[in-house]
Amino acid sequence: MTETQAPAISISNLTKFYGSPKGRRMKALENVTLTVGRGEFVSIIGPSGCGKTTMLKMVGGILGWDEGSIEVLGKPVTGPGPERATVFQSFALLPWMTVIDNVSFGLKVRGMAKPERYAVARKLLASVGLADFETSYPRQLSGGMQQRVGLARALAVSPQLLLMDEPFSAIDAQTRLILQTDLLDIWSKTDLSVLFITHAMDEAVFLSDKVVIMGARPGHVTDIIDVDLPRPRTEETRRDPRFVELTGFVWDRLRGMIQQDERAA
């Protein structure tokens, strides 16, 4: 990151209230400050209810907040924008559309003509290893393949910022490991900045330059850990003593919070 370039994401003093059924305002997020540099891969991890997904939606421009500010590439967020694309936990593929139509969906709503958007979609389908599945429907694909479609759809709009909301949490453990390395592979060939929400400690450490740990009630940042593991990260990385140490540290911090929570409940 050079001096003149604004960071990919700059969140400062972000606070969000939720209206509760009794009309009492509950604080969902309190004073969250966080920066994602250009080209950086940052994960957010935290117990359920810490507001990590809420925050991702706010960065995506589909949810408002009460205090503080969010800037993306130096511009305040006022809604969804073409420089951001999201990959969803539930995949959020349109079941009545073929794979290629799903991948080119973001381009369609931007008004790109069919031949052009199909050409873009084909390139991305090839890059996620699904070139032969253009005319398949999502339900014919495995969970891992469906999320590859979700990733291709996000990349198709050529975003500068990729927002990933627990993208691999609905996928079986083995496939998940493969998706992680494939994601890093794709990311390393681009200058994408990534904000990645996850529940999995090893996933956060394996993927990221920085792991942000959040606590709940209200959601707040407790730690920001720099992951100093060398890239490219491979299967060897998972056996690196430093990887084990960092994963253990994240778990220690989370375990404390979760146990406190259980006792309070």
Partner: peptide, 27 residues
């Protein structure tokens, strides 16, 4: 229609009309 699909369309900048045409109507 699944609210998650509408959220997805919204996040890609789909207009109300595009959401109607591509998500609500087929769903």
């Amino acid at each position: 229609s699944d609210p998650r699909l509408i959220e997805m369309a919204h996040s890609f900048g789909a207009s109300r009309w595009a959401i109607f045409r591509d998500v609500r109507l087929p769903a």
